[in-house]
Amino acid sequence: MSREAHQGKNQLRVGRLVKAHGLKGALKLELYTDAPERRFVPGAEFTLQVPEASPWHGKTVVVREYRVMNGNPVVFFEDVADRDAAESLVRAILWLDHETDEPEENAWFDHQLVGLDVVRDDAVVGRVIRVDHLPAQDLLIVKAGEREVMVPFVEAIVPSVDLSAGRLVVTPPAGLFEDLEDADDAPVDAADVDD
């Protein structure tokens, strides 16, 4: 199960096109949704996140067919009829306009996360100031004192999001919110010194 943040008030990031598949325009998907069978129905329209130089910039695609082939999710789009057209879409991120303010389980809109207190061991350590959407995962940018800390938005590090309480809980690895001592500066235990 994934943790997701969604840009815009009504946009859900549901997948990334990772590889052309076959000769008829199919593309393998990396899914960012727990309900692909609900999102990738024939006729579903997605906004593409691609570089400005891409011929697909500012365009949308419409699902013609979705299926699982050899354990991999694969999608066919209208007007993408061959491998060359599919290749031109590789690495595009798919965003779906969403009618409600309630995304699926374990998913939140950016505007719901920005402003939340970040709590570690029952103490507020910062506040979410923005969400960065990267291909591999989302990052919460947390203002912690004078620093901005990049927190991977994954369940292992952000196990709890409580919108009604205005907070999210983090269990970060050592060093994410504090400076670690250098090994050279660490105190030496007398038992570790040979005579």
Rank of each mutant, 00 (worst) to 15 (best):
L94N: 10
W95H: 10
L96F: 07
L96P: 04
H98C: 00
H98W: 15
H98Y: 13
H98T: 09
T100G: 13
T100P: 03
D101W: 01
E102M: 14
P103A: 02
P103T: 00
E104H: 04
E104C: 00
E104D: 12
N106K: 13
N106Q: 10
N106I: 00
A107P: 01
W108L: 07
W108T: 04
F109Q: 04
D110C: 11
D110I: 12
H111T: 03
H111Y: 15
H111D: 15
Q112M: 07
L113F: 02
L113M: 05
V114H: 02
G115K: 08
G115I: 05
L116Y: 02
L116I: 11
L116H: 00
V118P: 08
R120V: 10
R120A: 13
V124L: 06
V125T: 12
G126V: 04
G126P: 12
R127N: 09
V128Q: 05
V128W: 00
V128R: 01
V128S: 08
R130E: 15
R130I: 06
V131H: 02
V131K: 01
V131P: 01
D132M: 13
H133Q: 08
L134W: 08
L134N: 11
L134V: 02
P135L: 03
P135W: 03
P135A: 03
A136F: 05
A136D: 12
A136K: 14
Q137A: 10
D138L: 08
D138Q: 01
D138Y: 06
D138M: 05
D138N: 11
L139P: 01
L139A: 00
I141H: 05
V142P: 01
K143Q: 15
K143Y: 03
K143C: 09
A144I: 05
A144F: 11
G145M: 05
R147T: 00
R147A: 13
V149W: 03
V149S: 00
V151R: 06
V151C: 01
V151G: 02
P152L: 09
P152K: 00
F153M: 05
F153W: 04
V154M: 06
V154N: 00
A156P: 00
A156F: 02
A156R: 04
A156H: 06
I157N: 01
I157Q: 01
V158W: 05
P159M: 10
S160A: 10
S160K: 14
G166D: 12
G166Y: 09
R167G: 10
R167I: 03
L168F: 01
L168C: 05
L168N: 08
V169W: 07
V170S: 08
V170F: 03
V170L: 08
T171E: 13
T171R: 14
P172H: 04
P173D: 10
P173Y: 07
P173E: 09
A174S: 15
G175K: 09
L176C: 00
F177L: 09
D179A: 14
D179G: 12
L180P: 10
L180E: 13
E181T: 14
E181M: 09
E181Q: 13
D182R: 15
D182Q: 09
D182S: 11
A183H: 06
A183N: 02
D184K: 15
D184S: 15
D185A: 14
D185C: 11
A186K: 10
P187Q: 07
D189N: 13
D189P: 09
A190Y: 10
A191W: 14
A191C: 01
A191N: 14
D192W: 12
D192Y: 07
V193A: 11
V193M: 11
